[in-house]
Amino acid sequence: MRLAFLLVLFVFLVFIMPAVAAIGWWAMQDRPSSWREADWKATGLLPDPKSDRGARIYILAARTGGLKGALSVHSWIVTKAVGADTYQRYDKVGWGSPVRHNAYPPDGRWYSNMPTIIGQVSGERAEKLLARVEAAIKSYPFSHPGDYKIWPGPNSNSFVAHVVAAVPELGARMPPNAAGRDYAPGWASLTWSRPGWDVHATLGGYLGFAVGAVSGLELHFMGLVAGVDLADPALKIPGFGRLSLSWEASADEGDAPDGLAY
């Protein structure tokens, strides 16, 4: 009985309370009431593709719309081949054919929310990885109509996480508040990945953990992530994302509450 009480208390303090705080913070933000009223325009976050003839690979994320924006971001992939004058954007969405190609501006706002670059590769390194990224996009198993589930997945973040896992040389890390990033088909999954020799275990995307040089230490509960980043010192707080423990990083995190990164 005491153990059950302590477990419930742990879940409440570590997961439920931060999530409720994130919902309260989100409720006070000025947000569009519907997707029709939202701003989806380009932001100028990415450089003009005509100004750099080299290859580029970006992973971006922005808070999503509605109440779910309190707890999660939407992520997508942007690529540019050598000498190309335009970017190519790939998202997974919840309507029609799930994986969309150039449906939105490469660095466009998502439900009026400003995107953040969470991973990027350029030059010769990007050129070498581009074919593998494109192959991972094409091989995504949940790319047919109806292959979308907002929670626990497969959703937009499950799609990007698939590409990141298939091409670890990208060096990208999915944000802690990218709900659906830990989704795996079936009821139980245990995997390890390089670099970092990370071990990742999940029960249908509802419960799980990750540990390793890249993930640090993470606990997963109903799509929420709590943990500690050891390589780049930070706390991972459900709903809010990363709370950097580095003063310089905390001063540059952007639009989130002080020190928090989406």
Rank of each mutant, 00 (worst) to 15 (best):
A42R: 13
P195D: 04
R194A: 12
P145Y: 14
V78T: 10
A126N: 03
D30H: 12
L217P: 01
S189H: 12
S143C: 05
M28G: 09
D30V: 12
D255R: 13
K149Q: 11
K50I: 05
P238H: 09
G119H: 08
V78G: 09
Y148R: 03
V163I: 14
V163T: 10
Y140E: 08
G239F: 08
T79E: 04
S139Y: 02
Y206L: 15
R63K: 07
P106S: 13
E127F: 04
M1R: 07
I137K: 00
A172K: 02
A70D: 06
V160W: 02
M114P: 04
G54H: 05
I150L: 11
S51R: 05
S34M: 08
S215H: 14
T191M: 03
R132C: 00
I118V: 14
Y262I: 13
W192L: 05
G65N: 05
S156C: 15
L6V: 12
R63W: 12
R125V: 10
W110Y: 12
A213R: 13
K149I: 04
L207P: 02
V214R: 13
L67D: 01
I23Q: 09
A126V: 02
V121W: 01
T191R: 15
D258P: 02
Y87F: 14
T202I: 05
F240R: 07
K68C: 00
V78A: 09
A165T: 10
I57N: 10
L207G: 00
A249P: 00
Q29Y: 00
G94Y: 06
R100P: 00
M222V: 01
P18V: 04
S139K: 02
L45W: 05
N113E: 12
W187I: 10
A42E: 14
K41H: 13
E127P: 02
S193K: 13
L170N: 07
F240L: 15
N157H: 06
W76T: 11
D30K: 15
V199H: 00
K236C: 01
D39S: 11
M17A: 14
L129P: 07
A19H: 07
D30F: 03
A4E: 13
G223E: 08
S156P: 09
F5Q: 03
T79L: 11
G259W: 08
N157D: 11
G223N: 09
E218R: 15
I137G: 06
G24I: 09
E124T: 14
A226T: 09
H101V: 14
N155S: 07
D52M: 02
S51E: 08
L260Q: 01
N113A: 11
H220P: 04
R194Y: 08
R100V: 14
D52W: 00
F10P: 02
V167M: 01
V8F: 10
